[in-house]
Design a protein around this nucleic acid. Structure first.
Lengths: 173, 173
DNA sequence: TTATGTATGTTATACTATAACCAGTCAACC
DNA sequence: GGTTGACTGGTTATAGTATAACATACATAA
């Protein structure tokens, strides 16, 4: 559900995505986790141990992880080691807006802006594999318009870009 | 390789995509096939029997097909019946710009505008499964801009929308 | 003709995802 | 308390997507 406000109206949309910048990641991750837990509590969604652990795992880096990578980690932590365990937790997180599915990578990444009902564009660095969320309101507006020209009504869409992040550009990778 | 011209400059970009309109599909398909073959001949790319057959199969409808569906058809026609046969032909067609990969569907669709070096947005009708290509120059421009705001340089991107096509909208599906 | 590169066929396997069934937990209600 | 029902997680099994590696055939140019 993309929100239709101009990006400047939304506190989250105005916050630059830190995925590509050096930052205090421990703080970044615990902060996002706390926000997700608060949102879950508020909405009645149950942040169970597996689900929380999966989100923690995704939050360890700004990279996307395959379901089976997540599963390995879960198994090592004493949770079930069969695919549905990981897929169900990931599905829950995506539904709640706590994680995103990156179709180009067949993988999942923690949402760095939980609770902001956004539908970002994903920027995937081909060098360091980090994934950032870019505000996509204007991109989606252009897409809606291009679709409307053909009489097509967009319901959901995925916008994913592969390229080079600022750090890798600078270091010449 | 997206081209950077305004859509109006390109004959193909000005041609409305017929995927969602009723049209003489036999003509539409043979025309696109002929254009692809001419392009291949001109560029030295070899349009071998399997490759041509795969393109014909994709051109039978405006829907995306999974590699295994294509493979079944190939096998029925006396070609090899192992996955690489289909994947290799599909890969060739995608490289030549004669087909597109739709990541959201893990599937492939014939390109209806071969030779026009475009990078379209895909409009996928959730009711009839047809896929159309929408000119995406403005969408990509918006995406490049959103990425640039974070210092990210886009190299390739996929823009795919799920929704309802005009025909299905009208018939209330 | 021989050499070289390209294309196809084949075997095997890796990776991604879901269906279906079962058992435990928890809250609401009688 | 006991029962019901919804939800969660565990497990088995299988479906669906994709590629590595090797063998064979075939075209073209030297």
């Amino acid at each position: 559900m993309p929100h239709d406000h101009p990006d400047s109206d939304c506190p989250g949309c105005a916050t630059p995505d830190l995925a590509f910048s050096s930052h205090d990641h421990a703080h970044c991750a615990t902060d996002v986790l706390a926000r997700a837990e608060a949102l879950a509590a508020a909405s009645g969604a149950r942040m169970t141990p597996v689900r929380k652990r999966v989100l923690e795992i995704l939050l360890e880096s700004h990279k996307a992880m395959g379901a089976y990578d997540v599963l390995q980690r879960l198994a090592a932590d004493g949770f079930g080691n069969q695919p549905p365990v990981a897929y169900r937790a990931l599905e829950f997180l995506v539904e709640q807006g706590f994680a995103h599915r990156i179709r180009r990578l067949n993988a999942f990444a923690a949402c760095m802006h939980p609770g902001e009902a956004h539908a970002p564009a994903f920027l995937i660095c081909k060098s360091c594999d980090a994934v950032a969320e870019a505000p996509a309101a204007l991109v989606r507006a252009a897409l809606d318009k291009a679709a409307a020209a053909i009489g097509f009504v967009v319901e959901r869409s995925n916008i994913e870009a592969l390229g080079l992040c600022p750090s890798c550009l600078e270091s010449g990778k």
